[in-house]
Design a protein around this nucleic acid. Structure first.
Ligand SMILES: [Mn+2]
Ligand SMILES: [Mn+2]
Ligand SMILES: [Zn+2]
Ligand SMILES: [Zn+2]
Lengths: 148, 148
DNA sequence: CTGCTAATTGAGAATCATTCTCATCAAAGG
DNA sequence: CCTTTGATGAGAATGATTCTCAATTAGCAG
């Protein structure tokens, strides 16, 4: 049993919820994925493992995983909400190109430390940090310059 | 004529779009509001000034204002997208309490400088920065402790 | 193992923010 | 004034997410 399974189970127990088969399947699928995903993609993946899991259960499990601190919302912009697992992954910023939609990730440890300090002062308990920078990537900047 | 009006007009001219009456009204309403707003709230406000502006035009104008760099998406989480005007306002982080929904804003100048440096290295042109921290505010932490 | 109870689930309907359609209107230049 | 073309209003369409409710399952007691 993987560590994230223990964490999710502990979370569910504390909330007096059950660690059911659909929830186990959804959890392991989330941690088998290594990219940003939306509910529909997760649903498709889960269905490959078992056809007996409904879309509703996927949608219902996502907020539980967020509350448990295992995943969080990732880049926004598109219609669908996207997520990424955070357990075992260092926090990172997302640089989103408005032109090509490309997403670059960069380290965010330093900024997190600063925010933790400020959180201590404010007596705020941080659960989730998201830093998103939008603009033009170098590729699209070059294209824009050339075409003038 | 206010400065943000010049900016929007310049933006529209460059894109060969017209600075029409509905667009003027929406723009001035946006800058008369001093809180985060969603499309529906903006629509309601605009309608107080004129009943001849449609919801569709409000929705169509919002992305123009974003592209012009006058507003940007603000705290997410709720169903509706929220926005805030950024022209003339220093960049700030949003601390959102998951319990009470309260939003605290803090300065972000320092972090912005760091990001600008990194942007220069990456040759990325920044248009928009959003930093959102979710967790528990001091009030809700106290409540949680008391009720144990 | 068997029955009991409450939580969970699957399937599909409902919701509702946002986008789209298209007939009408208005800006800008002559 | 015209004319041309983009902009607009009203409401329909879309589509991600949430909700409903009957059927199923987990966890527990006997
Ligand atoms: Mn990421
Ligand atoms: Mn703000
Ligand atoms: Zn790009
Ligand atoms: Zn709070």
């Amino acid at each position: 049993m993987q560590n994230h399974e223990h964490m999710f189970e502990a979370f569910l127990v504390k909330k007096e919820l059950k660690f059911t088969l659909p929830r186990k399947l959804i959890l392991s699928t989330v941690f088998a994925l290594h990219e940003h995903f939306d509910a529909e993609q997760l649903y498709d993946e889960v269905r490959k493992a078992s056809r007996n899991v409904s879309r509703a259960t996927v949608y219902r499990t996502i907020p539980l995983l967020v509350e448990a601190g295992l995943i969080q919302k990732s880049v926004r912009s598109e219609a669908r909400d996207t997520y990424e697992h955070i357990y075992g992954h260092p926090r990172h910023a997302h640089w989103v190109c408005r032109e090509c939609g490309g997403v670059l990730e960069t380290d965010m440890q330093e900024i997190c430390k600063q925010l933790q300090k400020r959180a201590a002062v404010q007596n705020f308990e941080i659960a989730e940090i998201s830093l998103e920078i939008k603009g033009l990537c170098w590729k699209c900047r070059n294209n824009a310059t050339e075409s003038q």
